[in-house]
Design a binder for these strands. Structure first.
Lengths: 186, 186
DNA sequence: AGGTTCATCGTACCGCTGTACTATAAAAAC
DNA sequence: GTTTTTATAGTACAGCGGTACGATGAACCT
């Protein structure tokens, strides 16, 4: 076996195994043994890269955030970019639904776990809000950019929650979003 | 000790102990022993009323839903009632914040636990949406009642998520909600 | 070539948690 | 008044999960 291994890469592989497992079995049912089995590797190797459970969980969250980091680079007019960003937020296929649900599990854990709470665990507005506000200032001069950006993101978050819970179909959620966007964008 | 006890009442007491404990310690860290200690009672008594862990959890969820069942009875004009219902949805004080977070933990669990998923676990739109739609049909004839009701509830859900995560202050969330309501309610 | 380091494995331990078994006192039944 | 429920408590057991301890073979260094 090789001696030198890229530790960051290895950690990413293991974190990905955690995500794969947890997004179907649940985060609460995913420990060292499950991650090891999913990665096809020994239990102790997982502990070699993530010495403690807290670090394993944190590594999983870091990787998950990477997986669902929204692509903010779209082309087209500012109005088109706004629409594209918000649409990309909604979990409309099975994969993004699973990831969103896993993220919800992490968020719930973070409420009572200070270590996780310290880590930025958000698919929250903090990254997208300024981007959206800047685009809105350009595309919709009539509205207050920051407040409108926040409201749009909140709407997207709520629609996402309804989507993953099965209360809405993707078509309905997109329609609700578009209705709001059509009103704002001139 | 008395022989006859109201079992439903006792179950409610124990479920309340579970909620009290879980809303600060986290649902994952709340088992038979913790509930028993919180209720000042023996471990076995908890099991006497909730024979299995699944039933204990389900009992807690049932009680939690009761605690945060929104009061839909308000007085005033339809417009006032709409505003009151949506405001009441937002967790603006510490208690409702804790309960909302606990509910989020239950929702996350339900995604991977069929037994919990079968139980109606929602602070979702299913109860409020028809009520709101009926009021909207009266107060805002220009808009599509069902779609608008869903959008408003989604906005409320998103704002609630941002509130319990600390991204928004109650004042900001209420302002965002009011802005939207002012636009719709003529 | 020999020793050292490093990635990997197998196994063992210990604490916690759900669950089961037995006991007991008080109230109800008769 | 005795017997039978019934609400409660204490203790015990078994499985699982995180963690720790050794072992081993391959690659690197000199």
């Amino acid at each position: 076996m090789p001696k030198r291994v890229d530790h960051d890469e290895r950690r990413r592989e293991l974190a990905d195994a955690l995500v794969r497992r947890a997004r179907t079995s649940g985060l609460h049912a995913t420990g060292f043994r499950e991650v090891a089995a999913e990665a096809g590797v020994s239990v102790n190797l997982v502990q070699y890269y993530f010495p403690t459970k807290a670090e394993l969980l944190a590594g999983g969250l870091l990787h998950l955030r990477e997986l669902l980091r929204p692509r903010t680079e779209h082309d087209g007019s500012p109005a088109d970019r706004i629409r594209a960003i918000l649409r990309a937020l909604l979990p409309t296929d099975d994969t993004s639904t699973d990831l969103y649900r896993l993220h919800a599990a992490y968020a719930a854990l973070a409420f009572t776990d200070p270590a996780l709470a310290a880590q930025p665990h958000t698919a929250g507005p903090d990254e997208l809000q300024p981007v959206l506000a800047a685009l809105l200032a350009d595309a919709a001069p009539a509205v207050h950019p920051e407040r409108t950006a926040t409201s749009l993101l909140a709407l997207g978050t709520g629609l996402s929650a309804y989507l993953v819970s099965g209360y809405l179909t993707p078509a309905d959620a997109l329609a609700a979003l578009d209705e709001q966007l059509d009103r704002i964008l001139s």
